[in-house]
């Protein structure tokens, strides 16, 4: 990671919540009025959200941009976030009501680079790891790149927005750990058999986001099948701008030497083969 991705200037908006769609007892989609961010965002980028107005929690939280929201004329109006309630900050975002104001800084981070046809794009999502893929699917659709989504969750009730991907022409393969929808077990099983069936002469790139164990397994599959693979990493971040060095991951540079590399500005998207997976905290 010799060069730092030069970003568009991020902006901080005291943004109004336009809507909060609760998908389940834990998941919601929060719509935020932020035209300046929506118009600059690229697939896989993120925003830093202040989840409270006071000191608790003190720091912002990173969230993938889930959707670019557009007004009737098609102009970018805002962004939405796919939120899973896990702690104090995410609970506040789960509860947020329309009209509430939250500081939103973005867009941030190195985006996905969508491949062009004849290459295919295979997206692999686990749980809330679905978040960066809707914007990527739109970019791929615009390039007419044939696209698949392998999407796994614990049970059928935690598979969201599948129709949104289908509308974009994405072929969707589902898996649930309890077998309540799609393949029974981990999503890496159907991924592996699809990889084995695909002739090497037909180009393909994997894009992966989800729990560490899943990303690591996908990285290994991509390597053994000789496929390019990008992962979007989710680390605890202090600032999102490269200031604090708290979100580092051990990643190899061009000479193969591993360094603690900032996820916020050198990622969140990394080539999977650069990551030293043994050093990544499982979560």
């Amino acid at each position: 990671m010799a060069q730092v991705y030069t970003r568009d200037m991020p902006v901080d908006i005291d943004a109004t919540v336009m809507g909060n769609r609760r998908l389940s007892a834990d998941y919601n989609v929060l719509a935020i009025d932020a035209p300046e961010i929506a118009s600059r965002a690229r697939p896989g980028q993120f925003v830093m959200m202040k989840t409270s107005r006071g000191l608790d929690p003190l720091l912002r939280r990173p969230f993938s941009i889930f959707e670019i929201l557009r007004d009737d004329g098609g102009a970018p109006r805002g962004v939405s976030l796919l939120n899973k309630r896990v702690g104090g900050g995410t609970s506040l975002l789960y509860q947020a009501e329309s009209g509430a104001r939250l500081a939103c800084l973005g867009p941030l981070g190195r985006p996905f680079e969508p491949v062009d046809p004849p290459a295919e794009a295979w997206m692999v999502a686990g749980g809330v790891g679905l978040a960066p893929f809707l914007t990527l699917a739109e970019a791929l659709h615009a390039r007419a790149t044939p696209t698949m989504l392998f999407y796994g969750a614990r049970h059928a009730g935690e598979l969201y927005c599948v129709d949104r991907f289908e509308t974009l022409g994405v072929r969707v393969v589902l898996a649930t750990e309890d077998g309540s929808r799609g393949a029974h077990g981990r999503v890496t099983a159907p991924l592996e058999s699809a990889l084995s069936r695909r002739p090497l002469g037909e180009p393909l790139k994997l894009y992966v986001c989800g729990p560490t164990a899943m990303m690591r397994a996908c990285a290994a599959l991509a390597a053994s099948h000789g496929r390019a693979c990008d992962v979007s990493l989710e680390q605890v971040m202090g600032c999102g701008l490269g200031g604090c060095y708290s979100c580092v991951v051990l990643a190899r540079d061009d000479s193969g030497r591993p360094h603690h590399t900032r996820t916020c500005i050198d990622g969140p998207v990394f080539e999977a083969s650069r990551i030293v997976w043994d050093a990544v905290d499982a979560h």
């Binding site: 680390q235 060095y245 050093a279």
Partner: peptide, 8 residues
């Protein structure tokens, strides 16, 4: 290289 994560 500093310490491994988690750092904060």
């Amino acid at each position: 290289e500093g310490h491994p994560p988690p750092r904060i």
